[in-house]
Design a protein around this nucleic acid. Sequence first.
DNA 1: CACCTAAACGGAATGCGTTCCGGTTGTCAA
DNA 2: TTGACAACCGGAACGCATTCCGTTTAGGTG
Lengths: 181, 181
Amino acid sequence: MTRERADAARNRAKILAAAADLVTTRGIEALGMAEVAAASGVGVGTLYRRFGDQAGLAHALIDASEREFQQAFLSGPPPLGPGAPPEERIRAFLHGLTDRTLAQLDLLLMAETAGPFARFGGAYEAYHHHLAMLITQTWPDLDASFQADALLAPLAANLVAHRGLDGPTIKAGLDRLLPKA
Amino acid sequence: MTRERADAARNRAKILAAAADLVTTRGIEALGMAEVAAASGVGVGTLYRRFGDQAGLAHALIDASEREFQQAFLSGPPPLGPGAPPEERIRAFLHGLTDRTLAQLDLLLMAETAGPFARFGGAYEAYHHHLAMLITQTWPDLDASFQADALLAPLAANLVAHRGLDGPTIKAGLDRLLPKA
DNA sequence: CACCTAAACGGAATGCGTTCCGGTTGTCAA
DNA sequence: TTGACAACCGGAACGCATTCCGTTTAGGTG
C-alpha cells in the first residue's frame, strides 16, 4: 500500500474542516453526505472513498479526542494509565469513557445508527481489548470478553440518549456492575 | 379511538402472512417494504399506516412469540413466573430472553437497526419494567432502572450477532453480572 | 522532459425507506 | 335505505445514503 496522494490528503482535510463546521453551526442533522460534499467543494464519491460511509465520517470527526483518550488509558498517568491497580484502572476507564460519551452524544448516535455493526469499529474494539485485559488481571476466572462487552453495553449512545442519563447516574450504576469478589 | 375497520384487519392479516412467508422462504433481506407490499397485494402506504415503519413490521412478526414469553414471565409457572424467589426469577428471565433472542436474531437485528431508538419499543420497556421490579425486590439499594438496562444491554442483537455468542456463553456471563450481595 | 498507470475525482444513476395526496369504502346515525 | 364522514387505500413522488463509471491527475520511470 502506497502513501496517500497529496490531493487526497488535501481533500480529507477540507472535508473534515467543512463537516466539523457544519456540525457546530447547524447541528448534527446538517451532516448529510451531499451537504458535506457541497460544503467541502468535492463530489460525494470522494467522501465515500475517504470515509467509507456516513458512520465512518462521524468516526473521523470524533477521532481527535478519541486518540487523546486512548493515549491516556494506554500510557498516561494513573489511575487511567498504567501504574494503578487494575480494578482502579477499570473504574477510571469507565468513568472517563462515560464523560467522553456524554460529550459527543450526537456524533456517536450517528456513528452507531448507520449500520448494525457500526459501533464495533476500531475504537470500540480498542476499548474492549483494554477492558478485557484489565478484567483478566483482576478476576482471572471470568469470561473477560463477555464482561467487557457487558460493561461497555450500557454506554451505548442510543440507550444513554433515550433514558437521558447523566454522568453520576451512569458512573454509580457501572460501579455496581463490577464483580464483588 | 374506534375499532379497527374490517378491511384494515383483513389487510393486516394478509400482510403479516405474506411477510412471514417471505422471511422463511427467502430470508430477512427479502423484507423490503415494496417487496412485502407487492406480495400482500396492498400499497406501501398501507404498510406504513399499519406498522409505522420497517422496524414496526419486524416487531409485529416477532409479536406472537413475544406475547407468549411475556405471558410466561408475568403469570406462568415458576421460576419464570410468580412464586419463585426474585433472584431466581431474574436468572430464569435472563436465560429465557437469551433463548428468544438467539432464536429470532435476524428479525431483531432489523428491528434494532431501523432507528436509533427502535430497540426501545413496547417489548423492551416491558422487559425493563419487569426486571427492574425484580431487582428492587432483591437489592433495594440499587438503581434498579440502570441495572435493568445494564443486564439487558448485552443481549442487544447487534452485539450478539457480531461476537457470534451462543446461549451458554451469554447465560454464564449474565449470571456473573448479577450483584453478589 | 514525455510517458504511463494507479489512484482520485465528480456527479449522474440507483435503490430503498418514507411521505403525500386524491380517490375509495366501511360504518353509523338519521 | 341513504347520506356523510372518518378511516383506509394505492402508488406516485421524495429524500437521502450509496454505488458506478467515464474522466482527470499525481507522481514515479526511462
